[in-house]
């Protein structure tokens, strides 16, 4: 499997702020890769380095087999980009912007353009200054999705879209996936990432802290178990990987490291299971686990 994007040890500072601190990222050709992280984690900075808009201070970046800083314009013909913050020229219509960006990229699929305009319910005759945030976002989305490129780089593409339009966006990406297009999807909307992405990288303070398929990542977190047993449970407390154990007669509640699930289930069924509810970890939990130590720090900072 070849890689559309390979980043290793990327550093980027603005003055004294260290935006990227040795970031590694690999996106395989043909996959939809989720790029997850809260505001300010370095997602947009990474993307702007990938586009050759910023120059990394150190580290290697390869995009579609080329160097995004030196071969920017050539590589850009093979990709389409949707910025997180879309600003349009006030006196150009949405339709004009879509065509202009498409042509500068080397062509636009007219049929796809019309189809997307219809599906996103976008009026292309309005002037840039009169669009709402969501509609500006749609203009950028149509411009990017209507071109037949190998790689889509989407920076929080659904910000400002209503839930109906988010659904349309998901369908369109699903279709692109079938056409073997590579997608780098930066987002903090976990359900979107869960629904669309083959693999996920979680970025925190300028570093990728976790990367893999969703099921890979689920192994790193805990499943919550709620069981009613035939007899009284025993030996549970000694098992490794069990957390927050709460035994009340024959009822058991606990959190289990997913890797230790098998041992815990054996122990439980030894006492005879009458009913069982097991909840798989959500991406939210996964995400929160990586950020939980940031939250109190921020809250403290706010108090100060």
């Amino acid at each position: 499997m070849t890689s559309a994007i390979v980043v290793s040890g990327l550093h980027k500072s603005y003055g004294s702020t260290h935006a990227l601190d040795g970031l590694d990222l690999e996106v395989a050709t043909g996959e939809v890769h989720g790029f997850l992280g809260p505001n300010g984690a370095g997602k947009s900075t990474t993307i702007r380095v990938l586009l050759g808009l910023l120059r990394g201070d150190a580290g290697d970046v390869s995009l579609l087999g080329g160097d995004p800083w030196h071969d920017a314009a050539t590589l850009h013909r093979r990709l389409a980009y949707v910025p997180g913050d879309v600003n349009l020229w006030p006196n150009l219509t949405g339709g004009e912007v879509i065509d202009l960006l498409g042509r500068l990229r080397g062509g636009l699929d007219e049929k796809k353009r019309d189809d997307l305009l219809r599906r996103f319910d976008l009026d292309p005759t309005k002037k840039g200054r009169t669009y709402s945030k969501g509609n500006r976002q749609k203009v950028a989305l149509v411009a990017a999705l209507a071109s037949n490129v190998e790689l889509l780089i989407l920076d929080e593409p659904t910000s400002g879209l209503d839930p109906l339009m988010e659904e349309v966006f998901r369908q369109v990406i699903e279709e692109d996936k079938r056409e073997d297009r590579t997608v780098l999807l930066s987002s903090h909307i976990l359900s979107e990432v869960e629904a669309l992405c083959d693999r996920v990288s979680i970025i925190r303070r300028g570093k990728v802290v976790e990367t893999g398929t969703l099921s890979d990542l689920r192994h790193l977190t805990r499943t919550s178990i709620h069981a009613e047993l035939a007899g009284s449970p025993n030996g549970l407390a000694q098992l490794p990987g069990i957390h927050g154990l709460d035994v009340e007669g024959n009822r058991v509640r606990c959190e289990v490291d997913t890797a230790q699930l098998d041992a815990v289930m054996r122990q439980l069924s030894a006492s005879g299971i009458k009913s069982l509810v097991a909840q798989p970890p959500t991406l939210e939990e996964l995400f929160l686990r990586h950020y939980e130590d940031d939250v109190p720090a921020e809250a403290e900072a706010a108090v100060r």
Binding site: N91, L92, T93, G95, E96, D99, L100, L104, T125
Partner: peptide, 23 residues
């Protein structure tokens, strides 16, 4: 009220220079 414009770009609007002239 702002008036609507063309739904498609003119054939000439296809280069940075054409955009700059427009602006």
């Amino acid at each position: 009220p702002p008036c609507p414009g063309p739904p498609q770009a003119a054939a000439s609007l296809r280069s940075p220079l054409a955009l700059a002239w427009r602006l």
